[in-house]
Design a protein around this nucleic acid. Structure first.
Length: 498
RNA sequence: GGUCGGAUGGCCGAGUGGCUAGGCUCAGCUCUGCAAAAGCUGCUACAGCGGUUCGAAUCCGCUUUCGACCUCCA
């Protein structure tokens, strides 16, 4: 593979040259959603971020197997309280079958992903569909002596693990701190150490989701699903594991520990973590009760929202910032992103309609060189840890030039045919194929086109007769209907929807 | 309390030891019957205090301040 892709590995805390384990192939695992509720703006970030990652890897020529799970078993545990299953608990409240609710939120999630124009993962495994795999993995860990069973539950022995392996390396924490902060055990506690985490939980009688196991009826612990499913579909050592930074500990740290024992080595070559979306400086998340759901975002139906935002505006807004920086939500920021995204898209349209005269040498070699540089930097920036923010900045450097070609301020022969073709091809490749942008204004169609042509002819005629009252009326009424008419320099007229 | 990461102009945001990031907003101009769009021009920056350096917003230290994780979280 001919590239110089560097990505920031959270595990080593530095940018590393990407080299796939199997030449020509990439295994990518991204922690998917827990479908016990509707996805919100915060969830959009990892899935858009890693969509671009897998798009770029494909662009480089890799065959990518992209696995993104659906957590539908809802196996969470809460310290100091009886283990409970949030999925089944909420289902009772809503009087739905657990799987009915899981299905509903899974569908909503998929709907959102499609609107964002995220490619579908190659495999989207569910936790409930891989109970056997999870049990097998737990069994292996028990056999190797790193897990113990108590009253139908199985726990991972973190202290024993940490004696031999660097537990806490990914999240940068020291186990001693965790072990020392022993809190009072409230009788219920079965763990040998506070830091131990559940691989399998015994299900209390009221628990709806339950499966048979060698340890009795129960349900899998939180972390084991990702380890079991990634190993099944990507092998016990795969290239990239992605997810939100908030999953680094304990989720990903535990994945490393489990897999290391089960397979005898670490499971992942490169760990990638996206930063959070914040609102008023605070992380958007259910614990803060400050989420804006995707459906609210698209409809504008939320007290904080000044308007509705198109999915492509959200995508652009997310890509305008580097994925490892926090990104603060505000109406102002979204509105800025909306204008910028529209202008960029229109520039792309303009570029597509330009016809180069065909000269081999550039009339303005300096401009020619500048353009070639800006275009070449698309690749350079992408390969520097997926810096889409800088790519977009370069596209805006190009925008005035492209528009000037159309406006006539700059002649197209200023640049060579080769440079023009490269510009056109790379602009499309990065904007459409790699960053995954698509048109976000209303799509026109043949019928609308013919209706509009009638109106445009009427207006042209009115203008010719200097009947500006009529020409303005046509334009104003269309504008009220959400259609914008533009008088082009050459006397023609064009229209845009929305 | 522990660990880690930020503080950039009206807003959002990139980034680097010396070279205009970019976008949005705002003002002026060109074009236009008028608009819109587009183009051109302009406007505010690198939290504070020290240090290293010929030179730091960029490296180091301290201070102030915000946040993330340590519990479910993308």
């Amino acid at each position: 593979m001919n590239h110089n892709l560097k990505l920031y590995n959270s595990y080593t805390r530095q940018k590393e040259l990407f080299e796939s384990i199997v030449p020509g192939h990439v295994g990518l695992y991204v922690c998917g959603p827990t479908v016990s509720g509707e996805s919100h703006l915060g969830h959009a970030r990892p899935y858009i971020t890693f969509d671009v990652v897998q798009r770029y890897l494909k662009h480089l020529g890799y065959k990518v197997r992209y696995v993104r799970n659906i957590t539908d078993a809802g196996h969470f545990e809460e310290e100091g309280r009886e283990a409970q299953d949030k999925v089944s608990e909420k289902a009772k409240l809503e009087k739905l079958e657990p799987m009915e609710m899981v299905q509903k939120y899974t569908n909503l999630f998929h709907y959102g992903m499609r609107l964002f124009n995220n490619d579908e993962p190659s495999i989207e495994p569910t936790a409930t569909g891989h109970i056997i795999e999870q049990q097998n993995m737990i069994q292996t860990i028990i056999e190797k002596g790193f897990a113990y069973e108590v009253n139908g539950s199985v726990y991972f022995d973190v202290a024993k693990y940490a004696a031999e392996y660097p537990y806490g390396k990914l999240s940068g924490r020291i186990l001693e701190d965790q072990l020392e902060t022993t809190r009072e055990l409230d009788g219920q506690d079965e763990k040998r150490n506070k830091a131990d985490f559940a691989l399998w939980k015994n299900a209390p009688p009221e628990h709806i989701m339950r499966w048979n196991s060698p340890w009795g009826e129960g349900f899998p612990g939180w972390h084991i699903e990702c380890s079991a499913m990634s190993a099944k579909y990507l092998g016990d050592m795969f290239d990239i594991h992605g997810g939100g930074m908030d999953l680094q500990f304990p989720h990903h740290e535990s994945e490393i520990a489990q897999s290391t024992i089960a397979h005898g080595h670490e499971p992942v070559k490169y760990w990638m973590h996206n930063n959070m979306i914040t609102i008023n400086g605070k992380k958007m998340g259910k614990s803060y009760n400050n989420v804006i759901k995707l459906s609210e975002l698209f409809s504008g139906n939320h007290p904080i929202l000044a308007q509705a935002y198109h999915p492509m505006v959200i995508r652009f807004y997310i890509l305008q910032t580097h994925y490892r920086s926090t990104l603060d939500f505000s109406n102002e920021a979204l509105q800025g992103a909306e204008k910028a995204a529209k202008r960029l898209w229109e520039t792309y349209d303009v570029l597509n309609k330009l016809a180069h005269p065909g000269n081999e040498t550039a009339a303005d070699s300096e401009l020619d060189k500048k353009i070639a540089t800006w275009v070449a930097e698309f690749t350079e920036f992408m390969e520097d840890d997926f810096n889409t923010a800088k790519i977009i900045a370069n596209m805006f450097e190009l925008a005035p030039v492209i528009n000037s070609f159309k406006g006539g301020q700059i002649q197209l022969n200023a640049i060579s045919k080769a440079t023009f073709e490269l510009l056109k091809q790379q602009f499309a490749a990065f904007l459409i194929d790699i960053m995954g942008m698509q048109p976000f204004q209303g799509q026109s169609n043949d019928k609308l086109d013919s209706v509009m042509n009638v109106l445009i002819d009427l207006r042209k005629d009115a203008k010719k007769r200097k009947d500006f009252a009529l020409s303005d009326e046509i334009r104003n009424k269309l504008s009220a209907a959400g259609i914008t008419l533009k008088d082009e320099k050459d006397g023609s007229m064009s229209y845009t929807l929305g």
